[in-house]
Computed example of a mutant assay.
Amino acid sequence: MDTGKQSVSRTRWEHIRKNSFLYLLLAPALLLTILFKYVPMYGAVIAFKDFSPIRGIMHSDWVGFKHFEKFLTSPNFEVIFMNTLKLSAFGLICGFPIPILLALMLNQVRRKGIKKNIQLFLYAPNFVSVIVIAGMLFIFLSPTGPINQIVSWISGQPLMFMTDPEYFRWVYILSDIWATAGWASIIYVAALANVDPELHNAASLDGASLLRRIWHIDLPTIKPIMAIVFILAAGGIMSIGFEKAYLLQTSMNLPSSEIIATYVYKIGLQSGDYAYSAAVGLFNSLINVILLLGVNFIVKKLNDNEGLY
């Protein structure tokens, strides 16, 4: 047994020695990940303490799950939790297929010049600042904005897109799709570029239609990437950035726009209750980990027979 372990250890060190240059290239990224991702995890302990900046983390009183119980029993918990879940889940359901469809359509454009111009048009919104997008939405969707001018011409009265809670979720999701779908399609476009054109030619000679060629050739090529992207997206389903939601918030749409991220920001940074906000954030991260492991397990089981993992 010891001989076998020594042999495995020797083989491992030989592999590291032969690929030492590659590991050296990996070292800066690994170091940055440890410094900025793992080391700050130490601060999560304040979620279990009655944290005081003056006394510090180590000397603050331990209160256990007090802050978690406070959040779970608060009147706002159900509303905030469901707003976060709905906003992210609907965004995933509506937004996940769009980059795939864009990539499949781009793959059918044969003229390189036209294809590059279309890609430039689709990728450009990704580089627009969130603040600019929020400002554009307030301008275009205001009661006197161009969108409401069309709505008023049709229905006779404008719609309160930015103040009515019923419209907030769709304004957020559709604007997010517009801003990110083109950029998110890059990974699928790159994968489809590796498809052998002879496969499409052979399928065409056999009488396969365009849709059948996409279904039997293109989709199987990007299926592993789709699975990985879906797992990562589902794992971060509760991790909605607070910037856009906070910028689009008004006093009228709070019943649907208040999510965990904005709640943590208000409680932690604006009110100074760091321990309570850390507990809420840690609870949110725990939900993400559970979702990530669960979705990964389900997708792995579904694809075991297809050799994706």
Rank of each mutant, 00 (worst) to 15 (best):
169 R>M: 11
132 V>F: 01
171 V>Y: 09
177 I>W: 10
154 I>E: 07
166 E>I: 09
146 P>N: 09
144 T>H: 13
138 F>R: 15
131 I>W: 07
139 I>C: 08
151 V>P: 01
182 G>N: 11
166 E>A: 13
145 G>N: 02
155 S>N: 14
177 I>L: 07
137 L>Q: 06
166 E>R: 14
175 S>A: 15
182 G>V: 14
163 T>K: 10
130 V>Y: 10
170 W>C: 01
179 A>Y: 00
163 T>S: 11
152 S>T: 14
143 P>Y: 07
172 Y>D: 02
167 Y>Q: 02
139 I>Y: 14
163 T>R: 11
171 V>A: 07
139 I>P: 02
129 S>F: 03
162 M>P: 08
138 F>V: 02
168 F>Y: 15
151 V>S: 07
161 F>I: 05
180 T>R: 13
181 A>S: 15
180 T>G: 09
164 D>A: 08
150 I>T: 10
155 S>P: 07
129 S>H: 10
136 M>E: 01
139 I>H: 07
128 V>M: 12
132 V>I: 14
135 G>A: 06
169 R>F: 04
138 F>N: 13
159 L>D: 12
132 V>Q: 00
138 F>P: 03
176 D>T: 15
160 M>D: 14
181 A>Y: 04
182 G>M: 05
133 I>G: 06
137 L>M: 13
137 L>K: 02
162 M>Y: 10
151 V>E: 01
127 F>P: 06
181 A>T: 08
170 W>Y: 15
176 D>C: 02
136 M>S: 07
136 M>Q: 11
152 S>C: 01
167 Y>F: 15
167 Y>M: 08
151 V>Y: 00
131 I>F: 09
157 Q>Y: 10
129 S>G: 06
147 I>Q: 00
139 I>W: 09
160 M>E: 14
178 W>S: 06
171 V>F: 01
158 P>T: 01
141 L>G: 06
134 A>P: 09
127 F>I: 08
167 Y>H: 14
149 Q>S: 13
153 W>I: 03
147 I>E: 04
144 T>I: 09
181 A>K: 04
168 F>Q: 11
146 P>D: 09
144 T>W: 05
174 L>S: 07
130 V>I: 15
164 D>T: 03
136 M>R: 01
149 Q>W: 08
155 S>I: 08
172 Y>W: 08
134 A>H: 05
145 G>Y: 03
169 R>C: 06
128 V>H: 08
158 P>V: 04
126 N>I: 00
179 A>S: 10
150 I>V: 14
131 I>E: 04
156 G>R: 00
165 P>Q: 11
131 I>P: 09
138 F>Y: 14
160 M>R: 08
156 G>Q: 00
135 G>Y: 03
129 S>T: 07
138 F>D: 06
141 L>M: 10
161 F>K: 03
170 W>N: 02
180 T>H: 15
155 S>Y: 15
158 P>I: 06
144 T>C: 00
151 V>Q: 03
138 F>K: 12
153 W>L: 14
161 F>S: 03
148 N>I: 01
180 T>S: 15
137 L>S: 03
159 L>H: 12
169 R>N: 04
136 M>C: 10
165 P>Y: 06
166 E>D: 15
133 I>F: 00
167 Y>N: 04
162 M>T: 11
164 D>Q: 05
